[in-house]
């Protein structure tokens, strides 16, 4: 239990999802067993970006019609909520930007409106294009999490991409809408440490620090 701010935790042994309520722990159900994958990230992996050390404390795996992806919850020690999205061998590092919910397009999305692929969104002078829209459902989780990850949880995710790796992600679920701002990156640029050891593979030199 590293972070008292995160109310949900997945038991690594019995897949129970535990809700922390003061000093009480409440078992609120079982999460799905995570399907096997060859992600280089694991709970405890740390990243060093912009002078911050970000430690992976939780993971949610989302599935959609044509695949699945990982979202790794990062603890920066400053109470901010950051995620490392991992799909197709590439990464997207984002932080919550509640203030962007004021943008008209996002306000519309938050109240159930649609955003088509190809739509343009301007944030801080940078124009981003919506490159995909997915209806996703939770496939499983591990570690500590800010929301319950029971089977059946679903969300709408729209990814925007800017000309120079800029990324904006909009998510909408039963709780409402959230806005995530960040950038696409390869793993090496995130200066990772404590990567997962994968049988049959050696960690490239550029990824060790």
């Amino acid at each position: 239990m590293r972070s008292a701010a995160l109310p949900y935790s997945t038991c690594a042994y019995c897949q129970s999802l535990l809700l922390r309520d003061g000093l009480e722990l409440q078992d609120i159900g079982k999460v799905a067993v995570l399907p096997p994958d060859v992600s280089p990230i694991q709970l405890g992996t740390s990243l060093r970006v912009e002078g911050l050390t970000l430690t992976v404390v939780g993971r949610v795996r989302w599935g959609w019609d044509n695949g699945s992806w990982n979202e790794w919850l990062l603890d920066a020690g400053d109470g901010s909520e950051r995620w490392l999205g991992e799909a197709m061998g590439a990464f997207m590092l984002t932080a919550a930007r509640a203030d962007l919910r004021e943008l008209p397009m996002i306000q519309g999305f938050a109240t159930g409106g649609e955003i088509a692929v190809g739509a343009r969104l301007t944030v801080e002078g940078i124009t981003l294009v919506a490159i995909d829209r997915k209806e996703a459902r939770c496939l499983g989780s591990e570690g500590e999490l800010p929301f319950p990850t029971l089977p059946g949880r679903s969300m709408t995710n729209i990814d925007f991409r800017g000309p120079n790796r800029e990324a904006v992600s909009l998510q909408r679920d039963a709780r409402g809408a959230s806005v995530w701002l960040g950038y696409y990156s390869d793993l090496a640029s995130l200066a990772p440490a404590n990567l997962r050891t994968i049988e049959g593979w050696s960690i490239p030199r550029e990824l060790t620090r």
Binding site: S39, P40, G89, A90, D186, L187, A188, W201, P204
Partner: peptide, 8 residues
Amino acid sequence: LFNPYAGY
């Protein structure tokens, strides 16, 4: 081509 640490 794939490498779990370097992607595709």
